[in-house]
């Protein structure tokens, strides 16, 4: 099945197979998948893959998608340089 060699997190190059194995081995939540595989921890802040990770976890018998946002958003929601963070204007 080529399906399994599909990249889910483009930023960190994490495949569907890696996520699937992680969920199956650790029976874990999206948050744990993120910490174990780095899926969702790249430059885009998980914007592209978070929904896919949630869905995969749900499909594989993990916690279903609920009102709570499984993969919390933390600032900065856009990568910013130290200069900007330090108050230096663009």
């Amino acid at each position: 099945m080529t399906n399994k060699e599909t990249v889910i997190c483009r930023c960190e190059d994490i495949t569907m197979r890696e996520i699937q194995e992680t969920v199956e081995r650790f029976q874990c939540s999206s948050r744990e998948v993120k910490l174990r595989t780095r899926a969702g921890m790249g430059s885009c802040g998980g914007r592209t893959c978070r929904g896919m990770v949630d869905k995969l976890v749900e499909q594989l018998g993990g916690p279903p998608i609920s009102n709570e946002i499984a993969l919390s958003y933390r600032p900065p929601v856009r990568p910013v340089s130290f200069g900007v963070l330090g108050g230096e204007e663009k």
Binding site: R10, C11, G42, S43, C44, R47, T48, P79
Partner: peptide, 9 residues
């Protein structure tokens, strides 16, 4: 990929 700044690719 997204062309509007979301994906950072």
């Amino acid at each position: 990929y997204c062309n509007i700044g979301h994906c950072f690719e």
